[in-house]
Amino acid sequence: MSEYALVGDIGGTNARFALVKPGRVELEHIRTLPCADFENLDGAFNAYLAETGVGSVTRACLAFACPVQGEQIRMTNNHWAFNRTAMQQTLGLDQFRLLNDFTAMALGMLHVQPHELIAIGDGESLAGSARLVIGPGTGLGVSALIPAGSEWVPLATEGGHVSFAPTDELEVAVWRSLKDQFGRVSVERILCGQGLVNLYRAIAQYRSLPMPLSQPAEVLAAGLGGDTLAQEVLARFCRILGEQAGDAVLTVGGRGGVYLCGGILPRMADFLRCSAFREGFEAKGRFVDYMGKVPVWLCTAEYPGLLGAAAGLENPMVNG
Rank of each mutant, 00 (worst) to 15 (best):
L199C: 06
V185A: 04
G285E: 14
R267F: 10
G242D: 15
F164T: 04
P166W: 04
G242K: 15
L307W: 02
S163K: 04
K179P: 08
R273H: 08
A309C: 00
P154E: 08
S163C: 09
V133T: 12
F17C: 08
G137F: 08
I240N: 03
P147F: 03
Y303I: 00
L62Q: 07
Q69R: 09
E26I: 02
E243A: 06
E158S: 10
G135Q: 05
G242F: 15
A311W: 04
D180E: 15
S150D: 12
E232S: 12
E188Y: 08
T138G: 12
F277L: 00
G305M: 03
T103E: 14
Q205R: 14
L234S: 14
E314H: 01
A127C: 07
D168Y: 03
Y259Q: 00
R278M: 10
L272N: 06
A222L: 02
F82M: 11
L209Q: 15
Q215M: 05
S177M: 02
V162P: 01
M268L: 15
M268E: 11
A81H: 14
R59V: 04
G195P: 05
G320T: 08
F237P: 14
L145K: 01
V25A: 11
A63E: 05
V258K: 12
A104T: 12
F182N: 14
V112C: 08
V174E: 03
F64V: 10
P316W: 01
G312T: 01
G11N: 11
Q205M: 12
A130T: 01
R97Q: 13
A50T: 05
